[in-house]
Design a protein around this nucleic acid. Sequence first.
DNA 1: CTGAAATACTCAGTGCCCTGATTAATTCGC
DNA 2: GCGAATTAATCAGGGCACTGAGTATTTCAG
Lengths: 163, 163
Amino acid sequence: MAAVDLTTHPGHLARRLQQAHYLLWNTMVSEEITSPQFAVLNALVAEPGLDQRTVGERVGLDRSTIAEVISRLGRRGLLDKVRDPQDGRRFLLRLTDDGLRTHRKLAVRTARMNQVFLAPLSAEEQGQFFDLIRRVSDAAEDLRNPAEPTPPQGQALANTTHT
Amino acid sequence: MAAVDLTTHPGHLARRLQQAHYLLWNTMVSEEITSPQFAVLNALVAEPGLDQRTVGERVGLDRSTIAEVISRLGRRGLLDKVRDPQDGRRFLLRLTDDGLRTHRKLAVRTARMNQVFLAPLSAEEQGQFFDLIRRVSDAAEDLRNPAEPTPPQGQALANTTHT
DNA sequence: CTGAAATACTCAGTGCCCTGATTAATTCGC
DNA sequence: GCGAATTAATCAGGGCACTGAGTATTTCAG
């Protein structure tokens, strides 16, 4: 009887939350365009002409995943991909008219969906919800990227190098 | 300039949270056994002899995904799968000794990992974190399964009017 | 008892997500 | 100038997650 209670495990809750979101997205926003795909469209609305890697950074997708997502959006004709004449390694990304239209349409539906999704929480609780999740995510992210160009010295930070 | 702010989108936050968790799990718990796999082991520690579908229900995985996860655990020799003599459609699942040992080992590490993951929050905030996420997930889940076969008129249950 | 419905599982197909290795282009050191 | 890092993208491979279709078994209706 050493079983643990998964409802107190943040990882399990995170997975369930994402599944719940997936469900609502599919029924209220789109069955064609996924949430990560919308995030990419959104990043290119904000900053047209970004390269692939930077888009991935903006929306939080690694190099492999962003390549797949962009390939799908390209196949659907929602964005164009051209080699950077300044740097032959890069591809510059830009939404097509269709991509722009799609983003506008989905942005509206997404807002409605978010309202439904968060409806069980009061306005104040919704603020806490964002704040708590953001703080946990950011902290974990920082563990990966030690970051902070602090004065080169002080090895105090735990560098757990065990096995 | 119609781009939206993704940091106020619960779906985006949920995805980031899960990625953060994945990262910590990989470094602090196991590179072999994943979090969903551990959830299955845990369900079978709590209730040995469950069938595949029910395990999926317990841990929140659909029929296809649970089949894959169980197949992997079987390949690793962590569980056994035998046909139910009572009902030839079902497979009954049971952990092997190795599966039991693995669960015990990972349960300890998982507890440590959760502490690190939630360290940025105070004890009170951790409670809120669980509560808020659970409420949002449960509500979305209920939208799928309208549940409650027709409001049982009258005294169905829990009408204690004394709060 | 027998054919229809329900149920447990499998299979095919799509998409997200990561790591490690590889390729092509640029930049840096000397 | 030129070879050595560095960097952007791709490819191979493993795992999670869902839907729709198909198979086998059980249950239920008449």
